[in-house]
Design a protein around this nucleic acid. Structure first.
Lengths: 184, 184
DNA sequence: GTAACTATACCAACCGGACGGTATAGTTAC
DNA sequence: GTAACTATACCGTCCGGTTGGTATAGTTAC
C-alpha cells in the first residue's frame, strides 16, 4: 500500500455531513465527492456504489456506538442520565453519525433501519439494568428519542424553546425512578 | 362546476400514504398518480407542481391539527395525557398527516418544517397551561416526540418492545407533575 | 331548442436535466 | 510498479414538468 487512502475518510465524512445538513436527497455521489475535494472517480474507487457508501457510514457508526455504549455502561452519573445528556449533544461525532444513519433509514436503506433498532435495543438494556422497571426505562428512552428527533429536524424551534433548560431536565431524570414507588 | 374533483382528494391521500409507507423519495408524482388511479397529467391539473402537492398536504394537515388542539384543550384526562396518548396512535388521520409532513420537512420542504415548529409550540403551550412548570412540560413534549419518532421510523422495533406498555406509560404521565415537588 | 362556446376534468406523449454507474486513459506518491 | 488517485466522456433510467389533446357538462345567443 503506497499512500494511505486519504480520500476514503474524507468522502465518508463529507457524505455524513451532506446527509445531516442537506438531507438524503441532496447527498448525491457527485456532491459527496465535491465536498470531499475528490473526483467522482476517486469516490467510486473506494466505494463501488452508493449502497457501499451507506454501508461505510453504518460501519463507521457502529464503532462510535460501541464506544458510547462502553462509556454509558461505566458512567458515574448512571446510564439514564448519560443517555439523555448525550442525546442532547449536537456536535459529537456519534450524533453526526446517528443522524446520518437515521436519514438513510428513512430513505429506505434497510440496514440503516436495522442498525437503529439494534442500537435502541442495546440502549434500552443498559437503562433497564439501571432503573429496573420497564415502564421507567421506556420513559427514559422516549425522552432521549424526543431530544434526538428535535436535533434531527431542520429549524430552530428546539434551540429557542428548550435551550438552557437541559440542565433542569437532566436533574429530573434520576427522579423518574421514584415515580414507580409514587404510583404504588 | 360540473363534476366534483374526485381526483384531488384521492391524489392527496395517495401522496400522504406514499410518504408514510415508502418515504419521500418514493413519493413521486407518477407514483402518487398511479396509486390514486389517476394519470400524471390529471394530478398536475389539480396540483400544478410537486411544491403545490406538498402545500396541499400541509393545508389538509392544518385542519386536522386544529381539530386535535381543540380536543386536547377540552380533554378530561388533561392535555398532557391526551398529548402522549395521541402521539402513540398510529392509525388516525392526524398521525398519517403529521408523519407525512415530517417526511416533507426532512426532505427540505421549508413550510413543512415551519408547520411542525408551529404545531409543537401550540402543543407546548397547552401542556404548559396544565402542568405549570416549564421543565415538566418539556419532559412531556419530549415523551410525545419520542413516541412519534418511533412511529415515523420504518421497522418494528417499537412494536415488539413497547407494545402493551402504553397503558403503563400513560399512568406515569400525570405523576410527572409531582416530580417538581419531589425535587425541591 | 339547438348551435356555438366556455370551463372543468382529465389523459398520453414527450422533453430536459439529474443521477447512479461504467469505462478509460493518464498522473502522482511511495 | 503499484496503490491511489484525477479527468472526462458517456449510458440508461427516472423524475418533474410541459404540451396538446379529449370528453363532458353547463352557458349563452338566437
Amino acid at each position: 500500500m503506497a499512500r494511505p487512502p486519504a480520500a476514503r475518510t474524507k468522502v465518508l465524512d463529507a457524505y455524513i455531513s451532506l446527509l445531516c445538513e442537506e438531507g438524503e436527497r441532496a447527498a448525491t455521489l457527485e456532491a459527496a465527492a465535491t465536498r470531499a475535494g475528490v473526483s467522482k472517480g476517486g469516490l467510486l474507487y473506494h466505494f463501488a456504489s452508493k449502497e457501499a457508501l451507506a454501508a461505510g457510514v453504518i460501519e463507521s457508526t457502529e464503532e462510535h456506538v460501541q464506544l458510547d455504549l462502553d462509556r454509558m455502561h461505566e458512567a458515574a452519573e448512571g446510564a439514564s442520565v448519560y443517555y439523555v445528556q448525550t442525546s442532547a449533544e449536537v456536535d459529537t461525532e456519534l450524533d453526526r453519525h446517528l443522524v446520518a444513519v437515521q436519514r438513510l433509514a428513512q430513505a429506505g436503506v434497510g440496514s440503516a433501519a436495522a442498525m437503529l433498532e439494534d442500537v435502541h435495543a442495546r440502549w434500552l438494556q443498559l437503562i433497564l439494568d439501571e432503573v429496573g422497571d420497564p415502564a421507567i426505562a421506556h420513559l427514559v428512552i422516549l425522552i432521549g428519542e424526543g431530544l434526538y428527533a428535535h436535533l434531527a429536524m431542520p429549524g430552530s424551534w428546539y434551540q429557542s424553546n428548550f435551550e438552557g433548560r437541559l440542565k433542569e431536565l437532566l436533574e429530573l431524570v434520576p427522579q423518574l425512578k421514584k415515580l414507580k414507588e409514587l404510583n404504588e
